[in-house]
Design a protein around this nucleic acid. Structure first.
Lengths: 209, 209
DNA sequence: TTCTTATCGATAACGTTTTATCAATTATAC
DNA sequence: GTATAATTGATAAAACGTTATCGATAAGAA
């Protein structure tokens, strides 16, 4: 059963739907696409399409969609019903920050080990030396890795990861990573977001002067 | 002079160009769009278009683009030539993590104060109570705010911010924010990224079984 | 100087994502 | 039971972003 073919942009909206639906459950069990759209400032048709892509829940004319079914479908699609174990490489500033952040588990990600060139400890967790990477990845059959190393070594680290079976990389390093086919890189580039922010601010400031 | 109209997606690529160019300056001063494209795994034409949008640097046939001019143009466009002061609201796990992260200044963002319901201290910086927000924003004429509060109070915090003149919000809270016209919300939604990751992993695992 | 060729810049084709339109459906009121 | 109105789902149109094509340009070689 292939559930293939959900576009990235749809996927990125799903957590917003889920968040909204979970906090709005009070309304008697059904909600309309229009209501969701207006709350999330999205287009009504887009909401319907997104929901249709995700789960086989049929909407009922004059009522809307059954909220709990939607939540179930979204959770399932987002993999929040089963937690994935992950490792983190690079226990510098940002790495430690993420290690201490407790919010990931809620979304189905469990960081079970961290690695760095120099051993140490962060947030009560032991930091392993890089040499132990292959062994641990294989032994625990980890598929997800978070990269928080400096940009200039990111590719190198990434190669080690993919050659040991990592299938999904969450890359916080400000660098482009090349990976084998079938491996996904999700870039969480703070610089990119800042670029958008700054630029907006700039045109606002220039516009008003 | 309106520099308006740079698409979000182009903007998000700019930091990659900048990063690459800064680390590749050795080549005699010129670089071709093709070279950049192949290094960053982008389309050659796209690179030309992006660069053309950003700065008025003309490429020279048979040579390429003058690297230092590109860097200058990119830095300027990204606002990295002048640092913006910002504040952070929500000194929980993630907030403290970001406060301790030293990498933002490099990109032109300087977090000068942090706020939370409960006062305290993090990373050597004092955390101010929320009541002080309006005063500090106005006195220092801050335009950028980072939101790292829990999702259920994010909107409320956001309202305080925008009503005091904040023009750009970098939102790490897992919630949709409604803002007045002219204010930009840049969502850094970890959940969205995880959604993409998980889904990929899921279809990979199902595909191979 | 002239020729060759790499590279640009502009324009056009393509694909994807978003938005609009409208007939079909069914809960609710009368 | 019938009419009404809200809502869906499908199809079409529009907007946007990416990729391909091709003539123009100038560097460097002959």
């Amino acid at each position: 059963m292939k559930i293939q073919g959900i576009s990235t942009q749809t996927l990125r909206r799903l957590p917003y739907y889920l968040n909204y639906l979970v906090n709005c459950e009070a309304d008697g069990g059904y909600i309309s696409a229009a209501a969701v759209a207006s709350a999330l400032k999205l287009n009504e048709v887009q909401v319907r399409k997104d929901l249709a892509t995700v789960c086989q829940v049929r909407g009922v004319p004059k009522k809307g969609f059954p909220v709990s079914d939607l939540i179930e479908g979204l959770r399932d699609c987002l993999g929040q019903n089963n937690v994935h174990d992950a490792i983190l490489v690079g226990a510098g500033n940002l790495g430690r920050a993420l290690l201490s952040y407790k919010g990931f588990e809620q979304y189905g990600l469990n960081i079970i080990a961290a690695f760095d060139i120099k051993e140490g400890e962060a947030d009560g967790k032991k930091i392993f030396p890089l040499e132990k990477l292959p062994d641990i990845i294989n032994r625990l059959s980890i598929k997800i890795a978070v990269i928080t190393v400096p940009g200039d070594v990111a590719q190198q680290v990434c190669d080690i990861l993919t050659s040991n079976g990592i299938l999904a990389v969450w890359n916080f390093a400000p660098a482009h990573l090349t990976v084998p086919d079938g491996v996904l890189v999700q870039n969480e580039n703070m610089a990119s977001s800042l670029a958008v922010l700054s630029n907006h601010l700039k045109s606002r400031m220039e516009g008003s002067e």
